[in-house]
Design a protein around this nucleic acid. Sequence first.
DNA 1: CTGAGAATGATTTTT
DNA 2: TCATTCTCAG
Length: 705
Amino acid sequence: MALDLDTLNPEQLAAVTLEDRHALVLAGAGSGKTRVLTTRIAWLVHEGRVSPAGVLAVTFTNKAAREMLARLSAMLPVSLRGLWIGTFHGLSHRLLRAHHRDAGLPATFQIVDAQDQLAVVKRVLRALGADEERFPLREVQAFIAAQKEDGVRAAEVRARDERTRRLVEFYAAYDETCAREGLVDFGELLLRACELLARNALVREHYQARFRQVLVDEFQDTNRLQYRWLKLFAGPRTSVFAVGDDDQSIYAFRGAQVGNMAEFEREYAAGCVIRLERNYRSHGRILEAANALIRHNRRRLGKRLWTEQGPGEPLRAHQAFSDEDEARFVVEAVQRLAAQGVPLGQIAVLYRSNAQSRVIEHALFGAGLPYRVYGGLRFFERAEIKHALAYLRLLAVPEDDAAFLRVVNFPPRGIGGRTREAVAAQAAASAQPLVAAARATEGRAAAFVALLERLREQARGLALAETVRHVIDASGLAAHYRAQRDGAERLENLAELENAAAAFAEEWAATGGEAGEDPLLAFLAHAALESGEHRAAEGGEALQLMTVHAAKGLEFDTVFLCGLEEGLFPHEQSLYEPDGQEEERRLAYVAITRARRRLYLCCAQTRRLHGQTRWALPSRFFDEIPPELVQWIDTPRPSPARAPVRPAVPRGAPFRIGQNVHHPTFGAGVVIGAEGDGADARVQVRFGAAGVKWLAVSVAKLAPA
DNA sequence: CTGAGAATGATTTTT
DNA sequence: TCATTCTCAG
């Protein structure tokens, strides 16, 4: 695959060969987005407009970064050394390793994933004697992560109430702990990188002068911090090429700001917005359904997909009596398709929430149909892997308290809470890391430290994979799992970790790595930043089961979309979130646009959820798809959904639950409750910063938003 | 310190 | 319903 511009459509070509300026590319589903992005880079380099070292290409996933790099290497005969391509986190990590002193980090700083972060938060809350009833662990963690995603440090949080002030204290203490122990969480990677660039003019100017072309993929998923990150890398002579699709923004709950697209257009790309609306994936009816559905969203930049393929088959819809019947319907339809020769790997079953997979799996298993479920724990997130990694971290950084606590008693060696508390108290009193305090004790804790020191001594001079092997054996992990009845799989995973280390070391040697860096440190960072793909791969012999979120970016010949019911999809939780309904609709849009040829839409009248049987109406999304596109199977078309899950506001009240509203003082909010009617009507509204408030409809200047 | 039962709470999760 | 987390007795 050389650099081939002839097969690009006019819009793609315009984007690829755009003059040197900022641009926003609105790339619809299946419009050849990745191809445009990679061809753009190849074109810039090929034309001599930029050297590979002048390119910064940012993605969200490692998979996307790898794919872009692979395509680029195929298109360009030149060495791509010096090209910075990777995830926001991977690139931030690279920057921070190179400038750790300027960033105020130890050379051996460790990356903690969400799991590790939770453990640190827990430790901090315990140390502060926090009321864990009032401040659940997960909420505190979410608060800290959300603040970082917004680029806000503890000292900068505008705390209006007592509760927030307390949360800020936890946030500050958490950051202090991380700083003391040399730990950096995902948000911190980006925040530190931003602060480094913002404060250090020398570093900033160096990178701004170097990167003449900045390209961003999946721009609709960027959060506030990532937007800032991009602005800091983009100097006065840099062109930013942002590619995204506001209609596929489905990660607001993780801090993504769809508004970044409009903001970017205003701030950078004014007058240079290119729309890729020609779709190469789906048949006409599927696109029409998607277009019709998404038109119900109000906040859009606007886009309408089209295709030169014919209309194709009608969409098929089915309302089953129960979730089990729904699963049976899927199984029977899949069997018919399989009999027609459709490969199972080209069929996907999508659902809103993971809990739905159980029933479907059960039915598939009963029918003997092979399937693969995506989601769940990934390789580097498995307990046995995290344990092994903790030992490795302790080799690299003895003073890593988080790692210490994880394995001090694993495998069990009789060091319980009592001993740990004593060691922790000693460490706190002498302002030392836990290892140092433990070394000074008599007994088991000291013996553990001796074990660590022995391991470190023995690992000296060993290759990375040998070190991993040695640690697994000499730490007692291998023996522990060997003795367990169901430890075989865990042992296999540990063996796989050794393989992963070997593969990593080889890759490391081939690319040279960063000068002077320790391969063990690099491997640990790799493990944290790339927790192992668990997303679907093309082909295969098995049916693919996954959430709609996990399906983003993928495509299948046939898609079954299950559980299209009010309360499930759109999910009832979304009623309480600002713009929740629109996000759910975008999610449905993503689901629909995954299908190439056949799309089945399923719902059930009853569903077992949390042990109870619940009744549900067909999703409102059915009403938003033109009926002439849909063929109902075995079911007369159900009556329109309309009725909300919760009772609506009493008669005559102008607001419905789930509705977005605006208040002159509190700003944007969403109606989450109501009582009374007429002159007494009151509504409960959740505002962003101001929190939840009850407002009298007749008094408050509340307007629909 | 450890294992067994109770309590809990339960969308989505690229890094 | 069910999986994970927490508490308490041995």
